[in-house]
Computed example of a mutant assay.
Amino acid sequence: MQFIILPKRLYCPFPSRINSHVLAADAHTVQWIRKFGLLRSEEQIHQYRKEGYAYMVARMFPNADRETLCAYSDLNTLLFLVDDFLDQKDAMVSGGHDSGSVEQFSKHFVAILENPAIAHNSKEPVFAALADLWERLMRLGTAGWLEKYKKSLWRIFHAALWQHKNIEAGRWPSVEDYMERRQYIGAANVATDCVEMIDRITLPSEVWEHPVLTELTELCRNTVCWANDLFSLSKEREKGEYHNLVTILAHEKKSSFTKAIAKTVAIHDQQVRRFIRLTAMLPSFDEAVDMEIVRYVEGLKAIMRANIDWSNHETSRYQFQYADYKVAAATAAVAVHV
């Protein structure tokens, strides 16, 4: 796999944090994977642990209690595994990975959210695991949050179906269309929606729908996705996948990958700066609501920072380097020979 060289570190001036229950969450999710047979061998489980999904979740939600962190670690892992397997012919569920199969899978997945009991004896490990997980989340979340979360999961499948239909038709999306849908392709909406449940944030609907909070949420989701498009570019190019901002920019603008990478970095950094400017314009209601808004914004910051820290330090999923690393390595090599 060819390393992608990123011209600079991504701008994200938020503190790095990690949940103290990270090791417990990792151990729990490995046992959960074994219980439902989500991976086929101990070798695959070893590879899963190298990819460090529990560390990603622990960084995203540094304040979560142990039970909640384990539940979201399971969910995050399940979504990664579903995404990986549906992108390959070696599908985790019967029937392959064409758009028809994705649509059928989506309907069954969402049906389980309405009635987990239908999947307890399922022959498909992913559905049995989902039923177990959703029953646990039903105990953790409010009825209102659960309904909102189901809609978020449905949006992920709509985006996946759009992507598969593009591939089948040999159709390239425009940069604008891709940027609009990317937060759902990457399930970033699921992560931000979980801040409410995991951090126990209570806000009236009119506050959640305030334009400033809506834009902050979207900026968080998008910057996570632009960073991920940079980090995952090498892996996706190797597989011939083109639903990536760098690849689509290079195609639409007829530019080099080097220029498209630089443009994607710039888009990421500009949107992080926009996020920071907006945090100085938070709406004010009463003291209790205002404190909850601040906690929500801190949760968004944690997600943005977590994605970068995890990709830099704790996962083997991506292959990339920064230009300053190459310079430092070359300088060190020269020093050794002097």
Rank of each mutant, 00 (worst) to 15 (best):
I5S: 11
S94T: 15
I33K: 03
G100Y: 09
E42L: 04
H46G: 14
Q163C: 10
L79A: 10
D65R: 07
F127N: 07
Q88P: 01
D83H: 07
K89R: 04
L10K: 00
I4Y: 02
R182C: 06
N228G: 09
A24T: 04
F85D: 11
G37C: 05
K50C: 14
K235H: 07
S255R: 02
P15T: 09
F109M: 00
S94F: 14
L78P: 03
I198Q: 01
A143C: 01
I201M: 08
T331R: 10
Y72T: 03
K150M: 12
F36V: 03
V265H: 07
A58H: 09
W208P: 04
K326I: 11
E252A: 15
L249F: 08
A330P: 02
A187K: 13
S174H: 06
M1K: 13
W134N: 04
I276L: 12
D324A: 06
F109V: 00
N222S: 05
M281H: 14
R9T: 06
E241A: 11
Q270R: 10
V175I: 15
L140E: 08
I5N: 13
Q47V: 10
H46E: 15
M304L: 05
M281T: 11
L219P: 14
F80S: 12
V224R: 00
K107D: 13
P211Q: 05
Q163S: 14
E67V: 13
R221L: 02
S94H: 12
K50R: 12
R182T: 05
M304E: 02
G240C: 05
L69M: 04
H243P: 02
Q321N: 10
L23Q: 10
I45F: 03
R171S: 14
K326P: 00
V82L: 15
S41Y: 04
R40V: 02
Q270F: 03
W162M: 06
L69E: 02
A332L: 11
L300K: 01
F257C: 01
V289R: 11
T214M: 07
Y149P: 05
E135I: 08
T142D: 09
E51M: 07
K151P: 00
F320D: 00
Q47G: 09
P15Y: 04
A330E: 10
N63Q: 09
I185L: 09
L219M: 12
I4H: 02
H164N: 00
L219W: 13
D83V: 06
T217I: 01
R49P: 05
G95E: 13
C12H: 01
P15W: 05
M197A: 12
F36R: 01
N228S: 14
F14T: 08
L86W: 07
F36G: 01
